[in-house]
Design a protein around this nucleic acid. Structure first.
Length: 279
DNA sequence: AATGCTACCTGGTCGC
DNA sequence: TGCGACCAGGTAGCAT
């Protein structure tokens, strides 16, 4: 599910609700997520204060007063739900419940591709999930020079490179298509064919698309929901994602001639693009 | 080294 | 109504 904008939205809601809260107790109902959860998860976090909730790429980090950090990842279907009191009956796929003096946090993940790990805060940089991440979209070091360096001699399609978290982190399948649409670049182009101007556009529109989506509370596709129960609204701004056969919003072309937005499969995942605007 | 395929899970939808 | 095939926001691990 969540790409960077959705995780940012989740993080902001969780931060507002829980930073400063004391963890009273925790329950793990299904430890088999992407990794098997720490068997002492509940004991290790109980009694600690939630000092600070942050986001890195698609990960949410909850720094605790006891020197530990909870690392959350939401995979395809992970969600956080906030309740004021502990529900007597949990919902299907509620795997982790954390009770605090400021409310109840529930982690629900239908497909269990997400993860909830614990890491000593001082070792975060060495964590295998985090250490492989490339530049954050707003990192000052992310510029056309960095992109060109990463793309040099690279044969893979530029769409797949945008999904590669070790180059730029946080972009997922929806936004990769939307970014390339705005950047006017065909998704099947080899990375090594990307010019300096195009690399600059990738940086610019990565930031623009993700920023706009964060402002809209993320994209709600299928069942994504924010922790406060609201949905995001950025899907209303999608130009190409899931729009096969539709006219792209910036085209005046005749649908019967161009076929409108095209859908192809790359790396086993759907990509959408406008064959008229994108070169 | 880089690339590409498969697996990990559940559930919704579509065609027969 | 049922059943199988296929699809879905992500990533890791393995073979080539």
């Amino acid at each position: 599910m969540p790409e960077l904008p959705e995780v940012e939205t989740i993080k902001n809601t969780v931060k507002n609700a829980f930073d400063g809260a004391i963890i009273l107790r925790a329950e793990v109902y299904q430890p088999k997520l992407r990794h098997l959860m720490d068997r002492d998860f509940a004991a290790k976090i109980s009694g600690a204060r939630i000092e600070k909730t942050e986001r890195i790429a698609k990960y949410m980090l909850m720094k605790l007063s006891n020197g530990l950090t909870i690392i959350w990842h939401f995979g395809m279907s992970g969600k956080i739900r906030i309740e004021s009191t502990r529900p007597t009956i949990l919902q299907k796929h509620d795997h982790v419940v954390i009770e605090t003096d400021k409310g109840i946090l529930i982690y629900n993940d239908t497909r269990r591709f997400g993860l909830v790990d614990i890491c000593p805060t001082e070792n975060l940089a060495k964590n295998p999930n985090l250490s492989v991440l490339g530049l954050d979209p707003w990192d000052a070091n992310l510029d056309k020079t960095y992109v060109l360096k990463k793309f040099k001699n690279k044969k893979v399609a530029v769409k797949l490179a945008l999904l590669d978290q070790s180059i730029i982190c946080g972009i997922g399948n929806i936004y990769a298509s939307e970014i390339l649409y705005r950047a006017l670049i065909l998704p099947q182009r080899a990375c090594e064919s990307v010019t300096a101007d195009e690399a600059e556009r990738i940086v610019k529109f990565t930031r623009e698309v993700l920023s706009e989506s964060i402002a809209a509370g993320g994209s709600t596709i299928h069942d994504y929901k924010r922790p406060d129960g609201d949905i995001g609204y950025f899907q209303e701004k999608h130009c190409v994602y899931n729009k096969e056969g539709k006219r792209c919003p910036n085209c005046t072309c005749r649908l019967e001639k161009t076929g409108g937005i095209q859908k192809i499969v790359q790396g086993g995942r759907s990509t959408f693009y406008c064959p008229v605007r994108q070169k």
